[in-house]
């Protein structure tokens, strides 16, 4: 064991480069910095929220290289070279994504705090399964906690969005 172990705040920063919502960024980060902190504090993309500290609640869910991840459990340095999609990247030219529209239409949100993470998990679900059953929807968002809605309207919203996306 080295006796010259550095305190966490003394460890030199590391350069990373990644794409977020299609835009490229190059930044220096502390090795211990989490992806969610990087998104919220460095890039000021505060749509991605933090709801817990044990990877339970999913409020921080984003897509990293197409896969949903809980960005509180990914280090920013692990996203080096990657592509990140956050809730802010869902709308295109001001047009809501069908999931966003359906969440509002079906009252799939109340306080809106879980909504960004919920949308990203639902997005990933519909990417791999465009016609999920109710059971598959439940499974698809099992890592996302909502404390307001009781989930019922979220299920409805995802079903409606899936139907709308199949029509497109």
């Amino acid at each position: 064991m080295s006796t010259t172990e550095l305190a966490a705040h003394e460890v030199p920063k590391v350069a990373i480069e990644l794409s977020v919502n299609g835009k490229r960024y190059r930044r220096e980060v502390e090795p211990r910095e989490l992806l969610v902190q990087f998104l919220r504090e460095e890039l000021r993309l505060t749509g991605t929220h933090i709801g817990c500290d044990t990877t339970y609640c999913g409020a921080c869910t984003v897509l990293l290289n197409g896969e949903p991840v809980k960005s509180c459990t990914v280090l920013a340095v692990q996203a080096d070279g990657g592509e990140v999609l956050t809730v802010e990247g869902l709308e295109q030219d001001g047009q809501l994504h069908p999931l966003q529209a359906a969440f509002s239409e079906h009252h799939g949100l109340q306080c809106g705090y879980c909504t960004p993470g919920m949308l990203m998990s639902a997005y990933a679900l519909l990417e791999r399964n465009p016609k999920p059953s109710r059971k598959e929807i439940r499974k698809g968002i099992q890592g996302n906690v909502c404390r307001c809605t009781g989930y019922h309207n979220i299920f409805e919203a995802i079903e409606a969005a899936a139907a709308a996306m199949r029509k497109e």
Binding site: E88, L109, G112
Partner: peptide
């Protein structure tokens, strides 16, 4: 009536306390 609050919240454009530096 569809909620007025939703427009900002579904876009990730709400302003929760921790969002402010």
């Amino acid at each position: 009536l569809r909620r007025k609050e939703d427009d900002r919240l579904i876009r990730g454009k709400g302003l929760f306390t921790d969002d402010e530096p």
